[in-house]
């Protein structure tokens, strides 16, 4: 007879992985609702498509890899990846764009490295960056927030638009994001005070964008409270982004935007609480998480101001992902009894 020897401990106090993922999804809800409010219900369609295909790709690859499909789909990690990915895209994205991106995220970003737990890069960001590089035109076609355009597609029209079967009065609605707008204007030596006169801007960030960021913040705080994530990464990320923005803002408020604007624009909040905190690709020691967060914050500021793209959260996260083994190695905690 062969007997399998089971090691202690024989009791468990853990929350399941699935529970953690569900928490993340719940945390995403306030921001997603704000998103839908300001940019129309199309984002829901995007999320639905992304999540559906994320699960589909996951199932197919698991099947190809001869792994059990159900338990892996049940951990909801693919849902989180799909959801986060969809949130990064412009609100009215064509279906094939979403499919190509999420396909890359699941195949190249996740399963080529061995699946959940083995991917050095955040899969959603891999998918997003692939799209950003490959389809710059589609990826910079953002819609105007509803308070500015006054109208948007309804659910059915959005669906038609996403599926590419409706009339495409595309350009009428598109606009640069606030970050893009600031960057472009600064290149023309327009002072900040004048830039912010543009209708695109609200009180703190762009119209709509500031509320969406607040939504991510609320969801993020909820994750912190129920201990799904630890404070280190978000605090370090927002702290370093804020500090460096603040320094430049102090030097010259006419050529640099305020820390608040940086926090409430683009993907900073989403990145700080939901993307950079993805445990698989983030640093795993407490000190390491702080350095990791700081690194992302600095990179975001660098890319936003001097890089080729208006926002830099995705690139910053991927670059920091690359540094994780190094960070983890050099930030090992002092072991009990070490001299």
């Amino acid at each position: 007879m062969t007997s399998v020897i089971v090691s202690s401990p024989y009791v468990s106090q853990s929350k399941s992985l699935r529970r953690l993922m569900i928490n993340v999804i719940i945390g995403l809800i306030p921001g997603t609702l704000a998103y839908a409010w300001f940019f129309g219900p199309s984002i829901m369609i995007n999320i639905a498509i992304a999540v559906l295909f994320a699960l589909g790709f996951e199932a197919v690859i698991l099947w190809l890899r001869k792994k059990s499909i159900k338990p892996h789909l049940n951990d909801y990690s693919a849902v989180v990846t799909g959801w986060l990915f969809a949130l990064c895209l412009p609100s009215h994205s064509v279906w094939w764009l979403i499919v190509v991106g999420i396909g890359f995220a699941m195949i190249a970003g996740k399963h080529l490295y061995g699946g959940l737990g083995f991917n050095p890069f955040n899969p959603a960001m891999v998918g997003y960056v692939v799209l950003l590089i490959s389809f710059p035109k589609e990826m910079t076609s953002w819609h105007l927030p509803i308070p500015m355009s006054g109208e948007t597609y309804g659910l059915v029209d959005s669906l038609k638009f996403v599926l590419g079967i409706g009339d495409s009065t595309w350009d009428a609605f598109t606009a640069a994001t606030p970050l893009d707008h600031v960057k472009t204007a600064l290149r023309q030596d327009i002072p900040i005070s004048e830039i912010f006169q543009a209708p695109l801007f609200g009180k703190l960030g762009g119209i709509g964008w500031e509320w969406i960021s607040a939504g991510w913040l609320i969801g993020g705080l909820w994750l912190l409270i129920n201990k799904t994530i630890r404070w280190h990464i978000p605090v370090a990320l927002l702290g370093s982004l804020g500090s460096i923005a603040w320094v430049f803002y102090l030097i010259d408020a006419e050529t640099a935007t305020s820390p608040l604007f940086h926090w409430l624009s683009g993907g900073a909040m989403l990145g700080a609480f939901f993307i950079a905190t993805d445990p698989v690709s983030a640093a795993t020691t407490n000190n390491g998480r702080i350095y990791y967060g700081i690194l992302i914050g600095l990179l975001v500021y660098l890319i936003r101001n001097w890089g080729g793209y208006p926002d830099g959260v995705a690139f910053a996260v991927l670059l920091a992902n690359m540094c994780v083994p190094l960070i983890d190695y050099y930030t090992q905690p002092k072991v009990y009894g070490a001299k």
Partner: peptide, 9 residues
């Protein structure tokens, strides 16, 4: 052209 103003400008 769509998505870019800086270059033509």
């Amino acid at each position: 052209f769509t998505g870019a103003t800086i270059t033509p400008r």
